[in-house]
């Protein structure tokens, strides 16, 4: 039984945490792709930027002596999201809108987003240096242990406080997004524009507004994902640059342009990564006695070594692209 709880802690909780972060990032990527038809590579750095906004705000709050039972990082999240959304709209105005106005191809926008990536990354390191920071320098990171009332169980189910907030907030964000996309006029307009931009424009949808709202949602969610990733691990300038590729993999696996696909893709990639590096021999150990004599349980029985964790996402991506090029949910194309 202890081994199953180990499995639960490692795979289910780890996968859910990772999947939530991937899903939040992938929603932004996929919305931008659906509306503007280009792969926004700067999304990872928008996540990092959002995390740094939250970090600065948390520092300010701590400086003002505001202490609550909720970790300060979560307290300042709404304000940071507003700032990040404004920054996202500003980046669009400054770098992408002029190119769109000229009628540039999506590929040009993609290259422009590389430029934006480098500028954000340079600025972050310019202001904050390269060292690793943590949100929990002044307050403790709560650890929650649930002892199970079974006989012979010594290992508790354990997770940290930020992880609980993370999963709950992801759920709230996903439900809110669902309501927005299906109930509100603007959300329906967004879906219409993702399906057919020309038809949306002639039927009187304010496409400029839709573009702006897309950036607001994408920027806000990116900030949320980045901050939560920083709360779960640590805050580094290249925090999200390393996970932008799994996020893209999640968005593509789910079908670019499909918000629900992105959520599914995010969790799929998250769980696949934790499952692939999990040492399966742990689960075989309870059956040690009932296995045949010749069968010796190897010390390590993971599908891939943990160094290759990141490659799992790409292998899934490549296989999906080959077998079903538009993703699990049928995605848009340029």
């Amino acid at each position: 039984m202890n081994d199953f709880i180990f499995f639960f802690n490692q795979v289910i909780i780890g996968g859910a945490v990772l999947g939530s972060i991937y899903a939040l990032g992938a929603i932004g990527v996929t919305l931008i792709f659906g509306i503007l038809r280009f792969a926004h590579f700067a999304h990872g750095d928008m996540m990092t930027m959002g995390a740094f906004f939250a970090f600065v705000l948390a520092g300010l709050f701590a400086g003002m002596g505001i202490v609550t039972p909720v970790p300060t990082g979560f307290l300042v999240l709404p304000i940071a999201m507003v700032i990040a959304a404004a920054a996202a709209v500003g980046i669009d105005k400054g770098f992408y809108a002029p190119l769109r106005a000229r009628g540039a191809r999506p590929v040009t926008l993609l290259i422009a987003s590389i430029g934006v990536t480098m500028m954000i990354q340079g600025l972050i390191r310019l202001f904050f240096g390269v060292e690793t920071r943590t949100f929990f320098a002044t307050e403790p990171k709560g650890l929650i242990r649930i002892e199970l009332p079974f006989e012979g169980v010594t290992r508790p189910i354990s997770f940290t406080e930020p992880q609980v907030y993370l999963i709950v907030l992801t759920l709230i964000a996903v439900v809110a997004l669902h309501v927005f996309l299906t109930r509100s006029r603007l959300g329906k307009g967004m879906r219409a524009m993702a399906d057919n931009p020309d038809l949306a424009q002639v039927s009187g949808i304010n496409t400029r507004l839709v573009v702006r709202v897309t950036w607001i949602i994408a920027g806000g969610l990116a900030c949320m994902a980045g901050t939560m990733l920083a709360l779960d691990v640590t805050l580094k300038p290249d925090l999200a640059f390393n996970i932008i590729l799994p996020i893209f993999a999640a968005a593509i696996v789910g079908g670019l342009g499909q918000a629900y696909g992105a959520i599914a893709g995010g969790f799929l990639i998250g769980f696949a990564e934790t499952l692939a590096v999990f040492n399966w021999s742990v689960l075989l150990r309870p059956f040690r006695d009932s296995l045949p004599e010749w069968f010796e349980i190897p010390g390590s029985l993971s599908l891939v070594q943990s160094e290759y964790k990141l490659t799992v996402a790409f292998i899934i991506l490549v296989v999906v692209l080959l077998v079903r090029p538009t993703g699990i949910f049928k995605g848009a194309s340029t």
């Binding site: 770098f95 290259i111 422009a112 590389i114 430029g115 934006v116 990536t117 480098m118 500028m119 954000i120 990354q121 340079g122 600025l123 390191r125 310019l126």
Partner: peptide
């Protein structure tokens, strides 16, 4: 890194 991003933009 920033200069490079600026140049390409």
């Amino acid at each position: 890194v920033f200069v490079l991003g600026l140049v390409i933009s």
